[in-house]
Design a protein around this nucleic acid. Structure first.
Lengths: 234, 234
DNA sequence: TCTGCAGTTATGTATAGACATAATCGCAAA
DNA sequence: TTTGCGATTATGTCTATACATAACTGCAGA
């Protein structure tokens, strides 16, 4: 016998997933479900609150609870940590800092980050290598106003991404995935032919509204893919 | 005065986000938080359960509650509906079915879908066009065992993706994003140069364990990008 | 017809207590 | 030293109840 909480949840999810309860359909009131399952209102309430938090249903006082519109379906992409992935795959990982400077950002970067043009940022280019094969080229801007200690960091132990993740957890992030043809410089660094399709992941992160970092990571398209797995209900 | 539930949650999130409580740090026991905030254990329990559901903390019986490792960070990608996006952008949208047949799947497709080779599937190729410019090329397999009515569907009104989404809500999905160079056929359909980097989104969906559909959607890389936005805490 | 107030109702939050269960700890036996 | 078992403990689930709050309903008055 499963827990009642799970059973109620499964039942409701099944009805929604099967289409028996279409979007907009009014779900039985808490006191009705309470009678149906012979449990207290708290139990029903917790189930419905959880489903609402997951976006499956919409609740409004007095009006009741309805099945949510399936408007913006979402998928989850795993964000990889190179060293971790390499360790898991049992290959040797190393990285190389190709460039490091502190510069005022240009207008385009100011636009993307929402900071005033001319703000000083740490610019770092990193090459990620596994088993002597270049796997990704990373261009990163780090906001020294948010992470001042980055200015002194030589990135000897950890690459910038890992270093940052350990020090500054982010609260918001924006991701863009693009396909680009490799230009000469990139092709040379990644040891691929000019023109090869590459996957470019652009990520900007904020911590409590303060801009933290922007990373543009380019992967050779013939060797990499982003994989995600998603269940609409956890 | 905010609700106690929210206050406890904010406090804990702040400590984790600021790094004061690093990953692996043991969080006060429920009865300690209960004493600290002068509330009942149920209130604390609900807060911690929610945080655990969001992946911020890890709970284990007897062992206690610790701050979760930020290993598998996840990003959310919006899955787009062409017609919806077009309507929002105020441009004209139409689609064209280029190919439609019922065929037994080959070994590779069997591997990907987990179905036996030779299973009959509906194969549909669709071109998505906005303002007379081809925007995406879609190759789709639909499992007739799960969606038998698709065999009779002419896809006059809605393209296969939209049609399916309305009839068969999915419960699980797998996504792969790749960068590929356009081959001759693809380049001709999308009216781009051969070799142009394209974004290929591959999506397979299941409903309660039963395979529903596989879609491979290819976008010209110079005109498209996938955008996602994510907050680790809801 | 319109406006505003009071009543009703469904959900939101919180409590104090109960029993279940998994994981650990420590002691005792092999 | 190792194994096994019981005690302990923190979390998991659930109840019955209470009061708060938002929003709809309908009535009364302008």
């Amino acid at each position: 016998m499963k827990h009642l909480h799970q059973r109620i949840r499964d039942d409701i999810e099944a009805k929604i997933m099967s289409g028996e309860w279409a979007p907009g359909h009014r779900i039985p009131f808490e006191h009705e479900l309470m009678a149906e399952y012979g449990c207290s209102r708290m139990t029903v309430n917790k189930v419905l609150s959880t489903l609402a938090a997951n976006g499956l249903i919409t609740r409004r006082r007095r009006a009741g609870t309805v099945v949510a519109e399936p408007s913006n379906q979402q998928a989850v992409l795993q964000i990889q940590d190179f060293a971790l992935e390499a360790a898991r795959a049992g290959v040797e990982y190393r990285f190389k800092i190709l460039h490091r400077s502190i510069e005022p950002i240009d207008a385009a970067a100011a636009q993307r980050t929402g900071l005033p043009a001319g703000t000083e940022m740490l610019c770092v280019s990193t090459l990620h290598v596994m088993d002597d094969v270049p796997q990704a080229f990373e261009q990163r801007l780090i906001n020294l106003a948010t992470v001042p200690e980055a200015g002194e960091e030589p990135f000897k132990e950890d690459p910038p991404g890992t270093w940052l993740l350990r020090r500054v957890p982010w609260t918001d992030a924006e991701h863009i995935v693009r396909a680009v043809n490799a230009n000469g410089t990139l092709a040379k660094q990644l040891q691929i032919q000019t023109g090869t399709a590459c996957l470019m992941l652009e990520r900007r992160t904020w911590q409590a509204g303060a801009f933290v970092t922007e990373a543009r990571i380019t992967y050779p398209g013939d060797r990499h893919q982003l994989v995600g797995r998603f269940s609409p209900v956890a």
